[in-house]
Design a protein around this nucleic acid. Structure first.
Lengths: 95, 95
DNA sequence: AATAAATTTAGCACATAAGCTAAATAAAAA
DNA sequence: TTTTTATTTAGCTTATGTGCTAAATTTATT
């Protein structure tokens, strides 16, 4: 699948944007449980949001014993920055 | 509705991102018909995509006789830039 | 006034997304 | 080795989004 498609649709859900904000606020890494603890949703629902974000490569994970630690993939946000660059006023579509 | 919600969900659909790209390529303004002409979709479908983009304030329109001209709202993209700024590597969430 | 052109709105059908609970896995602790 | 803790997967239901065609609306032309 297209990278833009994955990233933009991952960002379309407010819960997923909040997950990214939360992770970032905690300096980039948190366990699945710690993330789920922040949300109203069931743990299973949050888990699926995490999978969507991971498929979009906006986060990555490692398992650590019985925990799973999620990390923000800061580099991936450059995809968005590049896309946005097309819309810099005055450039007429030129990066 | 939340501005982020409107903008991110507007950007979630590939046809809408293409509309923005097309408009930008044409230096920011086009008639509804010219936009619809670029797409495979029915005119009615494209018209609804335009409405979603307009509700998100990513575009704006004026009617000109029996045509409707759409303009990119370049300033609106700053909302995205500001959001992205939270995820600048090394800033630890500080703008 | 009647017709034509440009565009949107309405209404319907289908697909995808999102929420839940319950069951499955996997590793740690007892 | 049984139980507990952490997390994901499966299956189901409901909500939302998207596409279509047909009808409505609006302005220009004849």
């Amino acid at each position: 699948m297209d990278a833009y498609e994955a990233v933009f649709s991952a960002l379309a859900h407010p819960a997923r944007r909040r997950i990214l904000m939360t992770l970032n606020f905690e300096r980039g890494s948190m366990s699945a449980g710690a993330i789920a603890g922040v949300f109203e949703h069931s743990w299973a629902t949050t888990s699926r949001h995490l999978r969507v974000l991971e498929d979009a490569k906006l986060i990555r994970s490692e398992s650590d014993g019985r925990n799973r630690i999620y990390y923000i993939e800061y580099k991936r946000f450059d995809l968005l920055r590049d896309w946005l660059a097309w819309f810099s006023e005055g450039t007429g579509g030129t990066k």
